[in-house]
């Protein structure tokens, strides 16, 4: 079942078309990463599904139902920047989140503040917080009441390396418990480590979306190495089933259509040709590589 269905969303700011008919679905329990360079429309899209921006056209639905304030109450969200009353403490700000959304209670407020390591500073005014602390409070507000769906826009913004690792572990932990997490991020490495699904946006257009596996793997690459790389190149130039080959000083890459490569057969073939392989591996494309390839950066 889809948690969120987005259909042909379009949005313009004056002459700039921020979203040009974006459609995708987010399955229940997924950690869905939304990637894209600056200005690709990530935040615009999240803002529309959270009803702070009006789409020019297109629709979206949560759990197959049209969006409504009541549905939003069950979604923990961090959009763009931490938005809190500067003159109030962390605790009093979370009381407002609780009062509006109905998520959590007094004990839950203390619990989320402990989780994001702000409990000791719970009575300090928001205006006295560092950027990282503000971000932690925004994450605490999103986590309040343990919502089943989280929408996190750049959740690791302003966090130190330890904070980034903690958020990564938190998301993995929530995912294991069955929560659905929708996350926009610039940090491709983070997304690759955490996400089960990705959508890549470029200039308001959806370039690709699907499971991380499907998006990353569009061909099989077998990388091999031998003492005489020239002999290896000659022997494998006519290997059946390959679409292309590439090489560098030490290794050679054989490109196969997706799902057709067999490391065992390549090894046997080389052995029969009198070549002893020193190195053999099936290579997976990295998200970073794929991202640059798709966005043309």
């Amino acid at each position: 079942m889809s948690v969120l269905q987005v259909q042909d969303l379009k949005k313009t700011y004056g002459k700039i078309q921020a979203l040009k008919g974006v459609s995708f679905e987010i399955p229940k329990g997924a950690v869905f990463g939304i990637l894209g360079p600056n200005g690709s429309g990530k935040t615009t899209m999240l803002s529309i599904i959270l009803d702070v921006l009006n789409a020019d056209s297109g629709t979206y639905s949560w759990f197959g139902k049209p969006a409504s304030p009541d549905l939003r109450k069950h979604i923990g969200s961090l959009l763009e920047t931490p938005n809190f009353y500067h003159y109030l403490s962390a605790k009093n700000n979370l009381k407002i989140t609780n009062s509006i959304s109905g998520r959590g209670d007094k004990a839950a407020i203390d619990s989320v503040l402990q989780k994001v390591k702000l409990y000791e500073r719970r009575n300090s005014r928001f205006s006295t917080y560092s950027l990282g602390m503000k971000q932690r409070l925004a994450i605490a507000a999103a986590l309040l009441g343990d919502p089943q769906i989280l929408v996190l826009d750049e959740p690791t913004n302003g966090l130190d390396p330890v904070g980034i690792m903690e958020i990564r572990e938190l998301i993995i932990d929530l995912s294991k418990k069955g929560h659905t997490i929708i996350m926009a991020s610039h940090l491709l490495d983070e997304v690759e480590k955490i996400c089960t699904h990705v959508a890549i946006l470029k200039l308001g257009t959806l370039v690709t979306s699907g499971s991380v596996e499907d998006v990353l793997v569009d061909e099989d690459v077998v990388e091999i190495g031998a003492a005489d790389i020239e002999q290896l190149k000659r022997a494998l130039s006519n290997y059946p089933g390959i679409t292309s080959t590439t090489h560098n000083a030490q290794t050679m890459q054989l490109h196969f259509p997706k799902g057709t490569a067999s490391a065992e057969e390549v090894n046997r073939y080389c052995f029969n040709q009198g070549i002893a392989l020193q190195y053999l591996a099936i290579k997976k494309k990295r998200l970073e590589e794929k991202f640059f390839e798709l966005t043309g950066n």
Partner: peptide, 19 residues
């Protein structure tokens, strides 16, 4: 105007209030 300055008007809607 405070709500605009702190962007809490949008947060109130995100948290579940209708406009």
């Amino acid at each position: 105007t405070n709500e605009y300055t702190y962007k809490t008007n949008r947060q109130n809607v995100i948290d579940g209030w209708s406009r």
